[in-house]
């Protein structure tokens, strides 16, 4: 079903949130890295996410020193690196997924050094060419990203900056002003996959962001179960799940598919 992709980049991301909103639910945003447990399986897992109704998919680019990630995603991306996965493979993987007919918006999530080595110009140009809609870079804060941001804006792509529980009002304003698409709210202080119950302060964090922007807010880090997703979905515009899906995808495509379906249906 090689249908032409109707919208691309920032517009596609905005459309996905608008669609979820008309259905009176939060957007479901799963994460999975390319190359884990191997290249072919990672593409099949991402395809399964699209089939069960993911609204946006965050596609991980493995990095040797992933300091924002907890043990599960670290282990998975190190296996992906041992499998020879490069940023080039990740970009091409999205091209392959588009050829399979997947129209779900896809954003690349990775660390700044591999993206810099790839070249910001080439990366954003390739985004257009291969069907990447946007970027998330945990170690590129909004006040260090001017070069990259210009290119992203030039190509009308998405770019999500982070807001953390520790963020001051001025940092929240900066993230809101510079984000294109959605704001990535980190639920807890910590790395991906941390296990604590979702904190009460999250409600205050969301309220603080809402006072300065109308951008959709998606929450990630530490969302593991459909029940958590359901609760969060009533508070924010998007729910991001990484670690739990990576663990499931490491076992089989079917496990990842059924967990993704359960998460999607909880919203």
């Amino acid at each position: 079903m090689a249908t032409a992709i109707q919208t691309h980049g920032l517009a596609a991301i905005e459309k996905a949130f608008a669609q979820a909103k008309t259905e009176k639910r939060a957007a479901f945003i799963p994460y999975f890295p390319i190359g884990y447990p191997d290249y072919a399986t990672s593409l099949d897992v991402i395809t399964a996410f699209a089939e069960v109704g993911a609204d946006i998919i965050e596609v991980g680019v493995p990095f040797s020193d992933p300091l924002a990630d907890g043990p599960a995603i670290q282990a998975a991306t190190q296996i992906a690196l041992k499998n020879g996965t490069t940023p080039q493979h990740c970009v091409k993987a999205i091209g392959e997924l588009r050829q399979r007919g997947i129209q779900t918006p896809m954003v690349l999530m990775g660390y700044v050094n591999p993206f810099m080595a790839y070249g910001y110009e080439k990366l954003t140009a390739d985004a257009k060419k291969f069907g990447i809609d946007g970027f998330i870079i945990p170690d590129l804060p909004a006040d260090e990203a001017d070069d990259f941001q210009k290119l992203v804006d030039g190509y009308k792509l998405g770019l999500s900056y982070f807001v953390a529980p520790t963020s001051s009002p001025s940092r929240i304003r900066l993230a809101a002003q510079k984000s294109r698409g959605y704001i990535y709210l980190v639920s807890i202080t910590g790395t991906t996959g941390a296990k604590e119950a979702l904190p009460e302060e999250l409600t205050q964090n969301v309220a603080a962001i809402r006072t300065v922007t109308q951008h959709p807010i998606a929450v990630g880090f530490g969302v593991n179960t459909p029940n958590q997703a359901k609760q969060l979905g009533q508070l924010v515009d998007g729910v991001i799940v990484g670690t739990a899906l990576v663990k499931a995808g490491g076992k089989s495509v079917d496990e990842a598919r059924s967990l993704a379906a359960a998460l999607r249906n909880a919203l």
Binding site: D139, P141, Y161, F162, P165, T166, R171, G190
Partner: peptide, 12 residues
């Protein structure tokens, strides 16, 4: 130089 770190530690 600069400050290329996750947002959580920027306030710190």
């Amino acid at each position: 130089g600069g400050r290329f770190v996750p947002e959580t530690v920027i306030p710190a």
